[in-house]
């Protein structure tokens, strides 16, 4: 067993761990922060992405001992609570950049890192920047929009096509066909 001291979301944590313990399992099972998910065994899916001293890493590829004496940020560390979401998380909500939610913590952390390096990315830069984070639900369309929105740009403009069914302002209220008439109850 090896002793590690890791600052997680600003709080000191310490434990005696097996040298083989993955950082992802340290966060989930030792510290008890369950937002960080594990979706594969080959460092392909990025569901476990966290920030290590501010840089995004896949916590299933890192041993807990490699994070010793460093700072880790997980999605739980971004927002005070559900009512006060971090701007990136808020953008994911506004643009419906999540469905089942499993890739979301990793996707949000990867986005935080991406925007730190490139504050106003193009659609192509976003797609390539998030290549290591897989999502099965959204087809990435709304994830791309979320990242654009989080960067302070207009998703409709940057995406360069009529992404919504109608060109509704991002997050705005729009009446869909079929219920636009006759449902005044």
């Amino acid at each position: 067993m090896t002793k590690v001291q890791i600052t997680v979301n600003g709080e000191a944590t310490a434990a005696d761990v097996e040298p083989r313990l993955l950082l992802a399992h340290y966060l989930r099972d030792t510290v008890g922060l369950k937002a960080t998910n594990i979706g594969c065994d080959t460092t392909s899916c990025g569901a476990c992405t966290v920030l290590l001293d501010g840089e995004s890493v896949k916590s299933c590829t890192l041993l807990a001992v490699q994070a010793d004496a460093q700072e880790v940020t997980t999605m739980e560390g971004l927002s005070a609570d559900g009512e006060h979401l971090h701007p990136v998380a808020a953008a994911f909500r506004a643009e419906h950049g999540l469905q089942c939610g499993f890739c979301t913590p990793g996707m949000v952390m990867a986005t935080v890192s991406l925007l730190k390096e490139n504050p106003t990315p193009t659609e192509r830069e976003i797609r390539e920047g998030l290549e290591g984070n897989l999502c099965r639900c959204t087809g990435y369309h709304n994830i791309v929009r979320s990242v654009i929105a989080a960067s302070g740009q207009d998703p409709d403009t940057v995406q360069g096509l009529n992404g919504h069914a109608e060109t509704a302002p991002s997050g705005g209220v729009e009446v869909a066909p079929g219920f636009s008439t006759g449902s005044d109850s």
Binding site: A35, E76, R93, H96, G101, T104, G171, V175, P177, F179
Partner: peptide, 27 residues
């Protein structure tokens, strides 16, 4: 009417702050 309007999800505040609770997350 709320029907046909673009309403953001009530699920998301939890999903985007503490994360969802999947079977392996259960405490």
């Amino acid at each position: 009417s709320i029907m046909g309007t673009r309403v953001v999800r009530t699920e998301d505040p939890q999903f985007l702050s503490r994360g969802a609770t999947y079977t392996d997350d259960l405490i």
